[in-house]
């Protein structure tokens, strides 16, 4: 195991995040704040979801939305840019295993998501009274969802031939699934058909489970969310590792 090499990749990914801080760290915090101010304070001030205020209900959904977005964007843009201007070759010719490469990129995504999620949480704490129900579940969902979306980002970056390709998944899949996955609403409020349809949306389990970790309340049992998130993270990790091992679109 090349520990120094792995640590260097992680350091490099973090350095990249710092260098583009105005592009990747501040925008999600500001946009989350705007959501809270507009949806929480104005539209939802007299609205309860179950036993919690709408404002508190929004917090986990918005944080999870940013975990998903940032982990996908970090891994996909970092790897694709590496392919695009060829600096990925520095890593491919070095004595680094395919697993070290994948883990290095994943850590970059997890750390970025972790920083963004917790900064948003800190900002929200000024507006909403939040007591995290389970810190372990909070960390569990943050890490495993980041792993899954970082892997999805890597897979898309491997497949992509142009920057435009990276936006396809974000625009046509992630964003709609996020909005239908319960960021802004509880599925209990939906008609029965749409409630059942929501159960096929993997992002619903991520948001619902994360909401439980913060508020202690969820639409489904937490066990379902844990199973879905672990299964997705494991399968996506194995598939990503397989593609790196094969050198899919990395090696000729």
């Amino acid at each position: 195991m090349n520990w120094v090499g792995l640590w260097t990749i992680i350091k490099r990914e973090n350095l990249r995040t710092i260098k583009v801080i105005n592009q990747v760290i501040w925008p999600p915090i500001i946009s989350s704040l705007l959501y809270i101010l507009i949806f929480g304070f104005s539209l939802g001030k007299n609205f309860q979801v179950g036993d919690v205020s709408y404002l508190a209900f929004l917090v986990p959904g918005l944080i999870m939305m940013n975990i998903i977005m940032s982990s996908y964007e970090e891994s996909s843009s970092s790897l694709f840019l590496g392919k695009f201007i060829n600096y990925i070759q520095e890593l491919l010719v070095a004595p680094l295993s395919y697993l070290e490469l994948v883990i290095g990129f994943l850590f970059g995504s997890i750390i970025r998501s972790f920083v963004i999620a917790n900064l948003i949480l800190i900002v929200f704490m000024f507006f909403v009274d939040i007591n995290i129900h389970s810190i372990w579940l909070y960390l569990f969902f943050m890490i495993f969802v980041s792993i899954f979306f970082a892997c999805v980002g890597l897979i898309v970056a491997l497949w992509a031939d142009k920057f435009d390709n990276l936006a396809i998944l974000n625009t046509f899949f992630i964003t709609p699934l996020l909005f239908f996955g319960g960021v802004f609403h509880s599925i209990i409020l939906l008609p029965e058909f749409f409630q059942k349809l929501s159960l096929f949306n993997p992002l619903f389990y991520m948001i619902d489970g994360f909401r439980y970790s913060i508020l202690g309340t969820s639409d489904l049992s937490i066990i379902y969310s844990i199973i879905v998130v672990v299964a997705l993270a494991v399968v996506s990790f194995m598939f990503t590792a397989y593609l790196f091992k094969k050198g899919y679109k990395l090696k000729t």
Binding site: N2, W3, V4, G5, W7, T8, I9, K11, R12, L15, R16, K19, L81, I85, N86, Y87, Q89, E90, L91, A94, P95, L96
Partner: peptide
Amino acid sequence: NFDPYLSIADVLIYQAGYYGI
């Protein structure tokens, strides 16, 4: 094929890092 986020010295330091140094 330099890493666009690194300075000249970092290009060398990170390269050594990838080789376990």
